Simulated scan of single mutants.
Amino acid sequence: MQVLKISYKRHRFPPQIIGHVVWLYVRFNLSLREVEEMMLARGVDVSTIRRWTVKFGPLIVHVLRRRRPRPGDVWNLDEVVVKIAGRSYWLRRAVD
Rank of each mutant, 00 (worst) to 15 (best):
M1T: 12
L4G: 09
I6L: 09
I6H: 02
I6W: 00
S7T: 12
Y8G: 01
Y8R: 10
Y8D: 00
Y8W: 04
K9Y: 09
K9M: 11
K9E: 15
K9G: 10
K9L: 14
R10Q: 03
R12A: 11
F13M: 08
F13Q: 05
P14W: 00
P15W: 01
P15M: 02
P15L: 00
I17L: 12
I17C: 03
I18G: 03
I18W: 01
H20I: 10
H20T: 12
H20E: 04
V21H: 03
W23K: 05
L24K: 00
L24C: 14
L24Y: 02
Y25C: 02
Y25N: 02
V26H: 08
V26W: 09
F28L: 10
L30W: 10
L30R: 04
V35G: 02
V35C: 06
E36R: 02
E36W: 06
E37F: 07
E37S: 05
M39I: 08
M39V: 09
M39K: 08
L40M: 10
L40S: 11
L40K: 11
A41R: 03
A41H: 09
R42M: 06
R42L: 05
R42W: 12
V44G: 04
D45V: 07
V46T: 06
S47K: 00
S47G: 07
S47C: 08
I49S: 01
I49C: 02
R51H: 10
R51I: 10
W52G: 01
W52Q: 00
W52E: 00
W52A: 00
T53C: 05
T53L: 01
V54M: 04
V54Y: 08
P58Q: 01
I60A: 05
I60L: 13
V61S: 13
H62V: 09
V63Y: 09
L64H: 03
R67E: 13
R68Q: 07
R68M: 15
P69Y: 09
D73M: 08
V74R: 11
W75G: 06
L77N: 05
L77C: 11
D78F: 11
D78G: 15
E79D: 03
E79P: 12
E79N: 07
V80T: 15
V82E: 14
K83I: 14
K83V: 15
K83F: 07
K83Y: 13
K83M: 08
I84D: 03
G86Q: 08
R87V: 11
S88Q: 14
Y89N: 08
Y89D: 06
W90L: 15
W90E: 13
W90G: 10
R92T: 02
R93S: 10
R93W: 07
R93G: 12
D96I: 09
